[in-house]
Design a protein around this nucleic acid. Structure first.
Lengths: 247, 247
DNA sequence: ATAGGCAAGATGTCTGACAAGTCAACCGGT
DNA sequence: ACCGGTTGACTTGTCAGACATCTTGCCTAT
């Protein structure tokens, strides 16, 4: 077999170098200067051209600043993405990284036709069949989020959510190699807790909730999932690193 | 004078190519394939290595997807940053782009020692002298945001805010070439309108507001400004494009 | 029909060179 | 002693060409 499976393909050298450089950056203080490109390339075992492509990604993320004729400097090490919004991750993944335990409550999994709002969010005809997963996520016993994911049946069926379902539809979608998810567009707003949400989240009725709605896009720009989340403030700290518009 | 001023320095070829490629991408449909690198490089008048660095930035932003041995494809054209959070812009700039008029009310400009909270946000000793600018921004007559910017006097003085001050401290800081601002870290949460905010923003007391606090960093990672903003929901739609964590 | 080989064409990487910017040390004239 | 320009070392920016590797589809031998 000449075609090798994606799973056991070796990492491209660029990616190896990227991880290695990330470690180097993490070990340096802010404002410190990196070694010159030629020696850094030798150190990482790649050519200067490849190294420069790698560095470009870090510049794009705002972690490195280059000054022509002077050098390359560590700008701000985004601290291993604590709960930053640049990268889409499931609450479960974030909580696990912070060493916290999550539980699922009020779990409800149904297959039914999409409502008009859901159809619009999915960019699909109204009434198309979708899988709807609703649940409340608790971290260390405290309810922190009310989540609803809507996915067309073509992408996910109810039976694929095994009994070990920990509440993350996203993690399941990410593990379907055929989908090749790329980006998510997340809208941010606020909402007041209705009677129902107040009861489910254990907060006073009318208290302010952080509301996020998101569309998950595959590489060909199809909407794979449409999700609505309500977060109880104070439990998760969301932040986003923003680039200053370049001159 | 052998050293030329930053203002009239020619754009590096990479940046020219970046802008040209952005236009090409914008003119293409999603999923469409780009020309091969060699011909694209010729078309843009740069070498393949430079073109690849440029492409890397678009890949990093999720606008291009590359498949080894196959080609490069247009993924999703982030629609010319409507009010996305990836790039830091002033409300004034956003509103102007949308063709709306802004006004400033309750403007208050004082120089005084920093409060403990402000000092912590600025990562400076408590009581250091700062410039504090507070105001309410209205768009088309409707109050939409209550803003407070805190800047150490070393970076900005009250007298630098001319009489034509349109409410954007950010735009003034961006136009100070010596600062070289790079990134901003913005925390997102919610708050309920207190008596004071309710009156200033013309909303019922206790209604939910979107709260953002941000630190503005210069290239050497000094905090140049610390700002707190309260947004009336519904007037601005904030969203953020999130990358899926790479495998 | 089908499996295997093969070649075309795409991205991935490397090498070595030169261009351009920055900074500091140096040096001559005042 | 001071000031101004020059030089040179060192950095990032860009280039050209070559080869490696991956994917795909065609084409042939079975």
């Amino acid at each position: 077999m000449t075609t090798n499976r994606a799973a056991l393909r070796m990492k491209p050298r660029r990616q190896q170098a990227e991880e290695a450089l990330a470690k180097i950056i993490a070990s340096m203080k802010t404002g410190e200067q990196l070694p010159p490109e030629p020696s850094l390339a030798r150190q990482l075992g790649v050519s200067r051209a490849t190294l420069r492509e790698v560095m470009r990604t870090f510049v794009e993320r705002g972690m490195l600043v280059r000054r022509h004729g002077v050098g390359t400097f560590v700008s701000s090490r985004i601290p291993a993405l604590e709960a930053g919004l640049e990268v889409l991750e499931s609450i479960d993944t974030i909580a696990r990284r912070m060493g916290l335990k999550t539980e699922v409550a009020h779990l409800e999994i149904v297959e039914r036709p999409a409502t008009p709002t859901e159809a619009r969010g999915l960019d699909r005809p109204e009434g198309c069949d979708v899988l709807v997963v609703t649940r409340v996520i608790s971290v260390e016993g405290e309810p922190v989020a009310d989540l609803r994911d809507v996915v067309p049946l073509a992408y996910l069926r109810a039976r694929e959510l095994g009994d070990g379902f920990r509440g993350s539809v996203l993690d399941i979608l990410l593990n379907k190699p055929a989908l090749l998810l790329v980006t998510s567009k997340t809208q941010i707003s606020v909402a007041k807790a209705t009677e129902k949400f107040a009861r489910r989240l254990g907060v006073p009725r009318g208290s302010a909730l952080l509301k996020m709605t998101a569309q998950l896009y595959s590489y060909d720009d199809k909407v794979v999932a449409f999700s609505t989340s309500y977060f109880v403030p104070g439990h998760f700290q969301f932040h986003v690193m923003r680039k200053v518009s370049r001159r």
